[in-house]
Design a protein around this nucleic acid. Structure first.
Lengths: 344, 344
DNA sequence: TTGAAAGCGCTACCAA
DNA sequence: TTGGTAGCGCTTTCAA
């Protein structure tokens, strides 16, 4: 079966294509009567305008290109969920592409989508791009009038809207939370020291410790780049050497769980002798034993915010509003790896 | 900046648009010399054909519509990863939409994408659709010559390719695995009794028990519909009443973990006194304590297979090959919730 | 109130 | 070897 086109409808009533087009868009030019019969018929045969023709004509596709490094990551999956939902609600579609943290892939995908496939991008940049700082592909998209909203992992040099969390603040928050429940020696552990997220969290950790008028103890900090999570336990072992730490701030769930495991092996009870806070609020946190208290980044809200910002810009192409950076606040999700807060 | 079009290039060299078009597609009709200069210039200005124009002309978009009930589900995320990867490799894009298991949403999305947005669909059907068995929206897509490949959750009445796992076989496999490591009283637990996946797994469980010449004991089966995983433990408690079961086959990780937790509370050691196998090979399984042995559905492979089948059909529209159902085999991923296999 | 024509960017057929 | 033209499905301007 062929899709019904304006031509088909025109033939049906022996009128011109333009008449049909106008009738369907409820134009005053067309008489009430013809308008009515055409619209009724269109509904009957379930007429839908061909989107390619519309895109070609209007130079807009009503679709958004999404680039994320990964999709097996719970945070990003939440982000995608927020994006998809908001897009559909606004009659936009999303083309989702995975960069696998590869700079080249990111570049290729942007090129491929910059040819009338999408109206704009939401991007969480690839790790490689974050490291090599080559942002030319973003700039060429912008040059073609394809606005970009960057999310979470952002490129600071690029002229675009951004949605981030204040990771430094989050790091401080986590330290405070542990201190408020009595932790005296709070460690910090990252396996992704090369990423900005991690660097900011560490700064926040420093802030937090300093604020408490405690001194930073480098023996209580593990800050490395380690991709194989199997190594987490070995990586953390040194922290437990002198047996003083009673709390840990970990950049991700896996590291936090590994720390709890070691503490457990050392005969500590959690959270009484040892508390942990992780920075990703994923599935693990909800199912670990004990369940992990986390700092939640609110991925879905971030996705929604980014989509709204992009659509706002797409729908108002003339307004030259300056680029904004929206900071979504993080929250501590209380579970069982921390003691209740009290003033000690 | 405007995108370069054939017209722009034609103007540059004072030739016609058709010449440029032909030159760029390396047509023999055009002289070596002009071909060369045009191609060089095109590369220089980074010419890319407008995809909407191509889609309109060719009546194909090189994009695939994906409908999944959810994306926070690890299995589906793996599927999506496989789909995206294979699509990109074949120069297809993917438009991903979430149905949230709603029949209406599924219907709306298919309608919206059936207007020249995509060339075909890969669908894991919504729970509501599975229950109400209203497949008319699939059939209307097919009527518009938009092929469908169904994945995992399939609608049996619909004329299309399918990629599934043999869940009945998987259920049997799990029982055998437990029996081979010495389990005498193997329970079955499902919280999604209303879904076909679960029903097939249960059949497989029966097969397995029967094969062992044991008798089915209904006290060892929990088969209900329960969406709040908080209730898993209560739901499983009855299985442990008479303290005989020493192994469990659970339809998903959450249920398996809950069972292990109860067993642990009852003073059993895992896997020696109690073994567990789960049917979803997600993140939980890899991080639980002990780590959960699972039956893996190979989501990524299923995604890849579905995409290949769809592209195969799209690229050979004339061949009227009959619809195939591809069964991807499941594997047991050995972890620590089961004893090693030996012959008892 | 209706219709013809141009044009969005591209390909393909036919003519020169 | 090159160019003109039609057409994909649609909107919009201008003419009837």
């Amino acid at each position: 079966m062929k899709k019904t086109t304006l031509k088909d409808i025109a033939k049906q009533f022996n009128v011109s294509i333009s008449t049909v087009s106008k009738a369907l868009s409820d134009s005053e030019e067309i008489s009430e009567a013809t308008r009515k019969k055409i619209k009724e018929y269109a509904k009957e045969v379930n007429y839908r305008p061909n989107l390619n023709a519309l895109s070609l004509k209007n130079k807009r596709t009503k679709t958004i290109g999404i680039l994320v490094p990964d999709m097996l990551n719970y945070f990003l999956a939440q982000v995608l969920k927020g994006i998809e939902k908001t897009a559909i609600e606004n009659a936009y579609k999303v083309v989702i592409c995975i960069t696998n943290d590869s700079h080249n892939k990111e570049k290729e995908i942007i090129e491929m989508l910059s040819n009338g496939s999408v109206d704009g991008f939401i991007i969480s940049i690839a790790e490689e791009t974050e490291l090599n700082k080559d942002f030319s592909h973003f700039n060429s998209a912008l040059a073609f009038n394809l606005p970009i909203v960057m999310l979470d992992r952002v490129a600071n040099g690029v002229n675009c809207d951004k949605v981030i969390t204040n990771n430094r603040e989050a790091g401080k928050l986590a330290v405070e939370r542990l201190a408020n429940s009595g932790c005296k020696n709070i460690a910090f552990a990252s396996a992704i020291s090369h990423l900005k997220v991690s660097q900011d969290l560490l700064k926040g950790y420093y802030d937090g410790i300093n604020n408490l008028n405690r001194t930073i103890n480098n023996n209580q900090i593990v800050n490395i780049q380690e991709n194989h999570y199997s190594g987490y336990e070995n990586m953390l072992l040194p922290l437990f050497n002198d047996n003083t730490i009673d709390g840990i701030v970990a950049t991700n769930e896996g590291v936090a769980l590994a720390a709890m495991k070691i503490a457990h092996k050392k005969g500590k009870t959690i959270p009484d002798d040892f508390s942990a806070i992780g920075f990703t609020n994923g599935i693990l946190a909800r199912h670990s034993n004990p369940k992990l208290t986390t700092v939640s980044q609110h991925g879905e809200i971030m996705g929604t915010a980014a989509t709204k910002m992009l659509i706002e810009r797409l729908e108002n192409p003339d307004e030259e509003t300056e680029f904004k950076t929206k900071v979504i606040k993080t929250d501590i999700v209380e579970r069982n790896s921390t003691r209740p807060i009290k003033v000690y």
